[in-house]
Amino acid sequence: MSEAAALPAPEPALDPALTVGPAPATAGRPLLRLSDVHVYYGHIHALQGISLEVHPGEIVTLLGANGAGKTTTLKAISGLHHPRQGSIELDGQEITRVPAHALVRRGIGHAPEGRRIFGRMTVLENLQMGAYTRSDRAAVDADYERVFTLFPRLQERRSQLAGSLSGGEQQMLAIGRALMTQPKLLLLDEPSMGLAPILVEQIFQIIHDINRQGTTILLVEQNALMALGVARRGYILQTGQIVLADESAALAQNDEVRKAYLGG
């Protein structure tokens, strides 16, 4: 239960390849690998062959316009909407057809779009739901502590109904609840949506902190500027296809990206 044990902080090493070239520098076995993933909603071909990789310790961001398929990609990864074709691997193991609830045990934590907290439960009960699959009492206690340290607001409001929280607090709860599943890979879907600029800064700082504590993150965002600021690498998604993949810094310099997502 020592805080030190709960907070292993492997600093993501600044990548020397950052200035070298466009190829994302990725060595070793990826934590997550999508190969040629196709997802359909009925006849709508939502993801048209997505391939991407997330390596241990990284923050990777997935950018794109509304309807590009960002949320669908996360749903495919977390088992909420299975692909019709292609494969998804977690830590080298095939998980394409594994149902969502089983993936939670295997280390995928998903803070879904629109927060989706349990409004009629208290903050504490929401976090308890996050620990639903876990029986390691001491580690769960340590994780409550970790979440409350990351989000002191949640501790203040722990016995309040989650539905009565402000938008920012609900987002914090959604992230905290996903952390309680003890994820190896945390999927965050638009954590900045609908938040005041000052809160957005705060949330991104916390995302950074969570990553430094050792959790790999795949971040979907509309706020490209903030996302590229915190992520090591990024993928740009357009109508169901990945059109660009690079180091964050390079993407931030890319003319196309600047024009499309960074306002010039």
Partner: peptide, 10 residues
Amino acid sequence: EDELAAASMG
């Protein structure tokens, strides 16, 4: 409360 969120909790 929310079936999708419940599935995401395992």
